[in-house]
Design a protein around this nucleic acid. Structure first.
Lengths: 234, 234
DNA sequence: ACCTGAACACCGTTCAAGT
DNA sequence: ACCTGAACACCGTTCAAGT
């Protein structure tokens, strides 16, 4: 139920590409990406399916469009931030955006036509690394690692069959389902960690993020030291 | 074109759950997961769509089944391996499996009904960490980080609009498409790294993997040192 | 037991028409 | 210009029938 659903009584807001894409995100957020069909979207917007084709060429263009909106929602870090806190800020923002749009991660990396917000996001990540002193090759490494982790974590979080509130119930049911003799470590981890009060899978995010940032920082420092030695020799 | 496609001349191999799931993987590998329909799968197997329902309840069960087969293809490490090389072995095997099945990563974490090979894989990863001395909480951290990276990397690799052979052409076209003034760091990275001869995005995998393993090793060593100190005090 | 034809309620998309 | 009804070639799935 969006504000515009079936609003044939009031004055009809004219359809636009912007309104169409916002509606598509609303449908995907409310159910999942499988529920986003030309017909369901048209209904959400109070319009007939064929009207959509006046604003987009096809469904692929809708997917391209909503993914670019998702990227646009990731907050850029404060300009004054050092590279480490800038990367940390971006990662945490990206994850919170992807939590709002759990259908997005599988689509984000498979769009052949990246939009401006997508390109801007990637450019700014690489820019942060380059300006911090990472070589091109090292920036490429760091970029790949950083993105893989952020999307991979979001993918896992989206796939969990529970949110943090209902975790104990569902994990308990799953645990009861499989024989703990056959999967002893999984059983142990579930019983003594996942089922403990206060457990939230989301809390794992910052552990991995900081381990990665520490590793990159170490490499950067080593590179700086090597360059310094080099300049003394040359 | 599989060996069994349209083989109405020879003796018909009877349909089985096993043959059905193998056929489903073949269809998904050959095109992509979107091309896997009950009808296309039936045709691949030389059978009518409705026959499939004698071996599986519905399409969801097919997806559950093929994902469990994908997990079963990940090689377990040699029993004698230390934790670091065991984890490394598994990650590299997982990535090569996911390269054969690029449609798999988005599905792997979203199956509500994990099969035995899935549970066995996860149990063995956690087991490796626990036996190496990781605490339960630390094993949970490491497990999350490791899986996020492996799936995230596979997701990115699957999304690339090129394989390593045609990378220069496509990346060049994309680069030409967007104004390098607006995305200077992206343009630089593309021109001076991605377009260089011998570039292969897959090479980034081991950089991130080793950084993660180094970080985990450091944490494990610190924990051991702390425990050792503790035992001397107590 | 295993397989199937016909049918149902869905898809995305095209085309020719309406205002 | 913007919207739409009817139609086409697809989906997954059910049901009642065939061997």
């Amino acid at each position: 139920m969006s504000p515009n659903a079936g609003a044939d009584a009031g004055k009809r807001v004219p359809l636009s590409r912007e309104r169409l894409l916002r509606g598509a995100i609303a449908v995907a957020d409310a159910a999942d990406i499988g529920a986003l069909t030309m017909r369901s979207l048209a209904q959400e917007l109070g319009v007939k399916p064929m009207s959509l084709y006046h604003h987009v060429a096809n469904k692929e263009e809708i997917l391209d469009g909503i993914i670019d909106i998702v990227f646009s929602e990731i907050e850029p870090p404060p300009a004054a931030a050092d590279w480490r806190s800038a990367m940390r800020h971006r990662a945490i923002s990206a994850r919170s955006v992807l939590r709002r749009h759990p259908w997005a991660p599988p689509l984000m990396e498979s769009r052949a036509n990246p939009g401006p917000a997508t390109l801007r996001y990637h450019d700014s990540v690489i820019g942060t690394l380059r300006r911090a002193g990472f070589s091109i090759a090292m920036a490429a490494h760091a970029f790949s690692l950083f993105d893989s982790y952020v999307y991979g974590f979001a993918l896992q979080e989206a796939g969990l069959p529970f949110d943090s509130a209902t975790a104990p119930d569902v994990a308990g049911a799953i645990l009861a389902q499989f024989p703990s003799r056959e999967y002893p470590y999984l059983a142990e981890l579930t019983a003594e960690h996942v089922l403990q009060p206060g457990y939230d899978y989301g809390d794992e995010f910052e552990f991995g993020l900081d381990l990665i940032l520490d590793g990159l920082d170490r490499l950067l420092t080593m590179t700086d030291a090597a360059r310094f030695d080099g300049s003394r020799i040359g």
